[in-house]
Write a protein that binds this DNA or RNA. Structure first.
Lengths: 215, 215
DNA sequence: CCCTGTGAAAAGGTTCACAGCA
DNA sequence: TGCTGTGAACCTTTTCACAGGG
């Protein structure tokens, strides 16, 4: 098999980990990587690495491994991160600002180029290097900056409205931190990250082990 | 089947969504919920809701639905969130502080009661209501506050050291925002949330649709 | 008639184990 | 010999469809 007839979701979700691992490795040295090494760098097992990479094409050399540089390029290409995708953040409170200051986004191709907030004190100013606009300006901001991704960091009550506006402005990829289910058409891709939910999943495995608060 | 012989991971990961949905519903009304309603509130399908809930026990009534209040209690119990689990945040920069200000944690049973930072200017002070301690005090802080969960919000370079210290202090559940694979014993549960990775997964589905930055 | 609870079928994902090429 | 690429086995998860109680 040579191409990406259709890459499984589970594989797509791991490609960024491989990319991250390769970057870490390439900072130290180039040359070849084995599936074993890459597995360790990404925190998965080697069989999975080989199966995943075989979905993209036949980029390895038997008995040797993968050319790290070339593999990096191919994974980037599959993920569509050979280019830069500017991001707009809706809601520029604590979380929104923390995201803007998070260098990891820009480093990995997703610069936060604009923020939207309803607080008129903020609108028109530049905070942490990011210009803040009013909600009504969203469509223009998206257009001017060729923005393809929106992040929702508003309070829960405002999240659906922000989503609606993003979609109206032509955004088809949304990452939400709001702890609610967002309603959107099927062709809009939404990734929801609910931090409290993550803790509750952790909490499950915790049950019974230690004793909680009161005593 | 009546009890949780062993609840599948996929189910555990969805229980918090049901809980969230039930809270939303209970804020408006009590009474009964059908699997259809709950499915909509949680953003999954009804068959899944029924299968998931049947893992916990037989709490529904055929032809009627589930008693919302009681179901809420049973899911809480399964997740171990009938009690409060205090959290310590390692790294009190932008992200750490944003988390501390995020009311969602406390609301859902995970109050951030302490922070650890290497910046001696911060150590000894109380920022946003959270006392900041030096790394060397971690074990004492964990003990004094009966902390069961640690969150890693340090720069990537410091994340492994923070993890080591948490484990040393007896913490067995860790949520990490660091974009690296953390090394830890098998009995330590780690949930890694890499925000840039999430964006890259979004980016995959974006490929080809819109035109990125340069043109 | 309505909605849960659940076997059975289908789909999706992971792991195994080894053939095959450098 | 070493490591990739991959069918086949296995396991998990999802979906279907309907029996059965209220």
């Amino acid at each position: 098999m040579t191409g990406h007839g259709h890459i499984p979701d589970a594989t797509v979700a791991r490609l960024p980990l491989y990319l991250r691992g390769l970057d870490e490795l390439l900072a130290a040295r180039g040359g070849t990587v084995s599936s074993d090494e890459l597995a360790e760098l990404a925190g998965v097992n080697a069989a999975k690495v080989r199966k995943d990479l075989s979905q993209l094409g036949t980029y390895g050399t038997r008995g040797v491994g993968y050319d790290a540089d070339y593999l990096r390029f191919e994974i980037s290409r599959a993920l569509g991160v050979t280019n830069t995708w500017p991001v707009v953040v809706c809601g520029f409170g604590n979380l929104g600002r923390a995201l803007a200051n998070h260098t990891g986004f820009t480093d990995r191709g997703f610069p936060i180029v604009a923020a939207i907030d309803t607080d008129m004190e903020k609108v028109g100013t530049v905070i942490d290097g990011v210009p803040v606009h009013a909600p009504s300006d969203l469509a223009a901001v998206v257009n001017d900056n060729h923005i393809a991704i929106g992040v929702i960091a508003t309070p829960p009550e405002a999240a659906q409205a922000a989503t609606d506006r993003l979609i109206e402005a032509g955004i088809g990829s949304i990452m939400s931190f709001a702890p609610i289910v967002l309603v959107a058409p099927d062709d809009v891709e939404i990734r929801a990250v609910d931090l409290a939910t993550e803790l509750q999943i952790l909490g499950f495995h915790l049950t019974g082990s230690a004793s909680p608060t009161e005593w």
